[in-house]
Amino acid sequence: MLDVLMHFCPGCSHGTIHKLIAEVIDEMGMESNAIGITPVGCAVLAYNYIDIDWVQAAHGRACAVATAVKRLNPEKMVFTYQGDGDLAAIGAGETIHAANRGDNIVVIYVNNAVYGMTGGQMAPTTLLGMKTATTPQGRDAKLHGFPFKAGELISQLDGVCYFTRQSVHTPAAVRRAKKALRRAFDNSMEGKGLSFVEFVATCSSGWKLSPVEANRWMDENMMPFYPLSKE
């Protein structure tokens, strides 16, 4: 982790998840062997915070980028870091096919049910009834379709060795999440296939709530629809 102030809004889950990734890479002694792929979205500047080699991918294409990085450098530990707009909307195809090929990468998927960077518009993951900048009356299934469970979809594919859904809003959740990340990174180095680590996360700016209220809202509304894994 580099000693710089992060650009994220107060209370944003990205900061905590970044910290966990940095800790796991450090504990594995993989600082010189890791290559990360950043998305388009709030996490585009992740490379400013975690002190490893990074490549910034076009919107949604991180899994395609990671596929080639890993196949051409099989000894490297390769992971993508993507939001739900990046991964589940524009990048759904690339994600599904990397998963289906079983590429030995880790996909870290931060799902906060909105587009954060562009100002809180509807994402595929936006809950029914949820108000966003582009669903001011709330998401209506007839108009916008249904919330997209990318994790469940991906986990059906034969190339995926590990799917887990985590959060970072309580100390216990953070401890569990770190173990999950470690397992995912270990899988990739053992050549077991693609590991998909989803984080249910908050976007207090996009949700127009205080960080504390956002955590509560997430518990009450996101968790029933996107249930966390037991471990």
Binding site: M6, P10, S13, K19, T170, P171, R175
Partner: peptide, 12 residues
């Protein structure tokens, strides 16, 4: 010293 606060702090 449970460090729960530090664990959830997004900005370290």
């Amino acid at each position: 010293g449970c460090a729960g606060c530090a664990l959830v702090c997004p900005d370290s």
